[in-house]
């Protein structure tokens, strides 16, 4: 069975059927793209996969476990991490602390230990700092560790969000428009970074993107959404040559 198996997923907001009969199957290690016109329901799919919305119908299986309708925090613990289209960092905290919050569930010490500053507090904090710096160094952000997250430049904020998601140790990483608002140079850097983290962390990635250069450059498979329904899915080259997709999204 695939790492992520989604069958007949659907959600209604009142009378609006936002996503209907959505099927998706991602094998371990794949880099999968989810594309489609604005308002097609791509982010809604992400929100259902991460438990922010509860799907009305359908099932989501991660590594054979049913995670349909579970709480967001539990789904993260099961192995799904994500970034957001409109960046959601912990802006009032340092870059380092943002990643350390991502590491929260991998390191353990109690509230009382923290208040009393027992030896375990110092030992664990040191380990967390080292681990966080290690993750930041992948993105070249380790030199900016003490800066407030909200003071980072836009492109770096996107990378920090990915770093924070990676810190939770996911099996599956969901990237919601990682290249939005980036110039061509930044997009190229981002493509390299995505390839790098895939290799370094050995994880599976599902991404939403409008930048066709990025999508065709790195995604192995694609699913195209249109009006909440799957229009086409399969290997990237096949999907991008599908006349239906060209008509609905790419333009003739």
């Amino acid at each position: 069975m695939a790492l992520l198996e989604v069958t007949n997923l659907g959600i209604s907001f009142g009378g609006l059927r936002a996503v209907d009969e959505f099927n998706l199957s991602i094998e371990k290690g794949e880099l999968y793209g989810l594309i489609g016109p604005n308002g097609a329901g791509k982010t809604t799919v992400f929100n259902m996969l991460t438990g922010i919305y509860k799907p009305t119908d359908g099932k989501i299986f991660l590594d054979k476990t049913d995670i349909t309708g579970r709480k967001t925090a539990d789904i993260n613990k099961a192995g799904v991490a994500r970034t957001f289209q409109n960046i959601r960092l912990f802006g009032d905290q340092s870059v380092l602390d943002n990643v350390k919050i991502g590491l929260h569930n991998s390191f353990e010490y109690g509230t009382a230990t923290g208040i009393l500053r027992l030896p375990k507090y110092f030992a664990t904090e040191k380990e967390m700092n080292n681990k966080a710096l290690e993750i930041l160094s992948v993105f070249g952000l380790d030199s900016a560790a003490d800066i407030l997250a909200s003071n980072l430049p836009y492109g770096k904020q996107r990378e920090l969000e990915i770093a924070r998601a990676l810190a939770t140790g996911p099996k599956l990483l969901l990237l919601d428009e990682p290249a939005a608002g980036m110039n061509p140079n930044e997009t190229r850097d981002l493509m390299n970074t995505i390839a790098l983290i895939r290799k370094e962390f050995g994880i599976t990635i599902l991404l939403i993107e409008h930048d066709m250069k990025l999508v065709s450059g790195i995604c192995e498979k694609l699913t195209v959404l249109n009006f909440g329904r799957v229009l086409s899915s399969g290997l990237t080259s096949d999907v991008l040559n599908d006349p239906e997709v060209i008509k609905a999204y790419l333009g003739e």
Binding site: I52, T72, A73
Partner: peptide, 8 residues
């Protein structure tokens, strides 16, 4: 929301 998605 971000706090929930990192498992807090």
């Amino acid at each position: 929301i971000a706090a929930e998605t990192v498992g807090l």
